[in-house]
Design a binder for these strands. Sequence first.
DNA 1: CTAACGGCAGTTTTT
DNA 2: CTGCCGTTAG
Length: 764
Amino acid sequence: MSLKHLHRKLRNTDLPSEEFDPISAFESFETPVISNIIPPDRYTEPKEDYSDIITKVEAKKPQLASALKKLNLYQQQAVFSEDQKLLLSAMVGSGKTTVLTHKVLYLHFIKGIPLSQMAVLTFTNKAAREIKERILSFYENSTPPNSDELRYFGTFHSVARQLIKEHPKLQELGFTPDFSIMDQEAKEDFLQRLIVSHELDVKYRNKLDKRLKLYRNEKQIIYGNMKNPDDLVQLLNISRKEKQANNLMDFDDLISVINWLLKLKKTFIPEWIIVDEFQDCNQEQIELIQNLSDDQNHFFAVGDPNQSIYAWRGSTNVIFQNYIEDQSFVIMRLPLNYRTSGQLLNAASCLLQQNNDALQATRDQGKKLIIRNHFDDHQEAYYYVQKFKEVHQKGTPWTEIAVLFRTRQQIAIFESVFQLEGIPCEVVSKTKLREQAALFWLQNILLSGLHPNDMDSILRVFTSTDFGCLKAGKKLLSAYSKFTEGKEFASKLEAFSCFLSEKYKKHAEYIDLCQRLMGLADYLQSRKRDVNLYQYLSLDFFLKPTSINYQDDVADIKNALNELDHYTSKNYFGDWLEIYRAALSQVSLEGHFQINSGIQTETKGVRLLTIHAAKGLEFDHVYLSGANSGIIPLERKKAGYDHLKEEKRLLFVALTRAKNHMEISWHTKSSAWNAQDGPSYFLNSIPSALVEKVDTAPAKNSAIETTQKVESNDDSKWKVGTKVKHPKYGTGEIKSCNEQDVVCDFGKFGEKSFASAWAPLVKI
DNA sequence: CTAACGGCAGTTTTT
DNA sequence: CTGCCGTTAG
């Protein structure tokens, strides 16, 4: 039976019992798949008491001892374990970061392991920063470790960058240690430029990234409706050569290059390898861990198979299985949850596959999980406006409230309603450097100065719509390549400088800028501490003091330059140029200029985020919005059984974000694409004793209510006969309309119908 | 050479 | 439902 049919069947039948579990139903149809379940007898249980060790710690480092006393026995067991290979299966909210940092401190202060002999690997910059900060906070009265000692504390990618730079065989791959890092978008620009300048035929160009992944993982060239292979392979070959020639690496290259180098020659074996969020490792990251190991050194990994929600990104779901079978691994657990109240946690754990008492609540019973039915997202948004005002009145700060969504598209309507009704709110998503024109321009200026062969950065400096002087496009590229044909230049930057002064004499200031960029490296070297890049590059001229954004741009750029200053002087070890390059790499890796620890932007307001983005966070009140079947689990054409399981874990993650109040909503009439009527059938695996079901409003009344609401807030709703304008079809006249659809006659384009809430029509 | 139609895929996001 | 490719009909 196909997944699609199963979906159909589950939707159309009244489910036999409340405890019916579609996953087990599905399992009985399909061949069994490897599971992540760790058998209970595989766990090493803690001792009754660790006070003997704590007494020893007390003698050496009283501050650490008092912190260790606060841990529970499972946590102490993991911290004190001297097993060579240890896997810690940490349940949600069980204090895994605490264990990890205490373990590092214990190893360092008590076991005498130098921090520089530990590789502490995380997936996100946020996690890396948190661990470093917690460690530094232990040095209140003594000199903290310098950044050189914490060199191998960081994300997989930043540690890989560090290791690549230090590796003696890098030249053999055609790179030099001052390579520059392209972020995802820079890589995309780079490939698109190659396609244009080499006149390659590549289909689905806007889905290039997806296609490259497919090719890398499954060697698949045909995508979508393609019949014949295109020039994708050729593009990859050209891009590889181009990257080597110009000393560029993308994020993926960082990991694969270091793996290649370490296989050639192992240069560094840390005494301890410590990995956070181990379940998110992909194959290459596992390889990196292996390449950093020999049979002497220690390995400690913390992870939670139940929170593995990134399989689609390549994290291997067999990872825990492998280590369970490997008897040389000791496995411990952290079963005690400190975050969520009892009944909510019980409800959440019904979604797990291992349903023995793997997850234990330590808190009070608390309130029941609420499953609420709304007519649609609009009604729900207004319900939240009321509800949040009440909750806030009773003393819950806005920041302790979060609304979770499965997809990003669901968020917009809530944001606009909250803004309209005065609920402070914030959509959590990373603001891209690219969207802040001035900072993006600065980044490219510095990149072109420090990596004079980085053609894309150079191009972006001079073709920036706000601050450049040239127009980007095929014309420019071909003019440039015609100009350089048969000539030799020391660097791309020099070539471009000649090109400018030959063909664009009138842009004297930009030719000047080019000259100064060529001198940037020398400037940074010779002026040592006393750099003033703002002046040196005459940025004030380019920021155009007459422009409307001038004040903001100058402030942003000065801030960014301060950050760079701070970073470079803090991490200075004897080579200014090198440290500036490191700083810029960090900017690429983190996607912003705030690269110094300790600086976190304070958020205020209710948070609107996807479940994925909520991982690792916790809130007092959590609302999961629009949990209809078809959304949770998100239905796809090509869905596997693993996909279903991951979607279930995703729901688990959502439910365990809440400390005290959790509400799941579903819509009678969902506007989301693909959504089915009715609540997620995953919810059927939660016994009714743990749930409070609320039918907010009978469908008909609320339908009228919501449309009235819409009309009162937005008085431009359609009436028959209204003349309207459409961006594509031009002017037309409304032929009919109801609360869902608008039909409009556009003359020569004929009649078109739109969803009334979203119709791109303007009244005229 | 262009318009119309059929078929397929789409989410989530960190570095 | 949208965007894109490939085919086919005019």
